[in-house]
């Protein structure tokens, strides 16, 4: 599977997770989730509202950068994507660094809004392209955002699942464990086990992530890519200009 084909698979796979949502928000520096949200909006025939930070077109907020968080606390946002430098088996996220704190030998930008949105957005979809033991760890070095909370904590939100470059997991919030549900085409189960630093459950029937249909590919390469140019010019252009890839009928 080429890099572009995998990108398209992930866009399609993430978009499927937004079924039934009314409002999805996408954070900064998240081109694949942004593409997925736009794809889902097109498939929803306008029923899904998409708010993309950094976009002027897909962002109706008029009360500054706090409005997203206020919306989330009120339940006005149904889905959000989060990632992290480390994600552990209890779905804890680390966006801060590795190897001690505060003088972390490996230091990342910081937690952004993760500690908040993870608790308040009902459907948080974890996404990380790199699927390796250094990312998917048994225990994160720093908890930016906790995967689970005691039952009496106010927590309408939390992780729904994790999608990587190799596979898809569902998260059970009561058990605090991931279950492997899908492997991407061409990825062996043994490869996933070897690349995952935490223990996980295996679904009764391990499915293969469905490849996007020709119609979906046409939407990704056409209107979705065109829409993304303002926010992620390089990413959008790479999808738009694919001279080596076979194109579905009707696209030039």
């Amino acid at each position: 599977m080429t890099g572009d084909a995998r990108t398209e698979l992930l866009i399609s796979c993430l978009a499927d997770r937004l079924a039934g949502c009314r409002h999805v928000a996408v954070g900064a520096a998240s081109p694949i989730p942004a593409a997925a949200a736009l794809l889902a909006r097109m498939s929803s025939e306008g029923r899904l509202r998409v708010s993309i930070l950094g976009s002027e077109r897909h962002n109706v907020f008029t009360d500054g950068s706090k409005e997203l968080f206020d919306c989330a606390a009120q339940g006005r946002i149904d889905a959000f994507f989060l990632g992290g430098g480390q994600i552990d088996g209890q779905a804890n996220l680390n966006l801060v660094g590795v190897g001690g704190y505060p003088r972390s030998p490996v230091r990342w930008p910081g937690s952004f809004g993760s500690a908040y949105l993870y608790h308040l957005v009902p459907r948080v979809i974890l996404f990380r392209l790199e699927h390796s033991p250094r990312v998917l760890v048994e225990r994160v070095d720093f908890i930016s955002a906790a995967g689970t909370s005691p039952a009496h904590h106010h927590r309408p939100g939390g992780p729904e699942g994790l999608i990587t470059g190799k596979a898809a997991f569902r998260f059970d919030r009561a058990l605090g464990r991931f279950t492997l549900t899908h492997r991407h085409p061409g990825v062996a189960l043994a490869d996933i086990v070897a690349a995952t630093g935490f223990a996980f459950e295996l679904a009764a029937e391990l499915a293969t992530t469905p490849v996007p249909s020709a119609a979906t590919l046409a939407m990704i390469r056409g209107p979705v890519a065109a829409d993304l140019v303002q926010i992620y010019p390089r990413f959008a252009t790479e999808i738009l200009t694919r001279p080596s890839a076979p194109r579905p009928d009707g696209l030039t």
Partner: peptide
């Protein structure tokens, strides 16, 4: 984290010493 900064500024804007905020516990 983003909303703590916003809430801290909103507290200052209101002239109150603090504000409560959801989420974040366990971080």
């Amino acid at each position: 984290t983003c909303p703590v900064i916003h809430a801290g500024l909103q507290a200052a804007e209101k002239g109150v010493p603090f504000l409560p905020l959801r989420g974040i516990l366990g971080s």
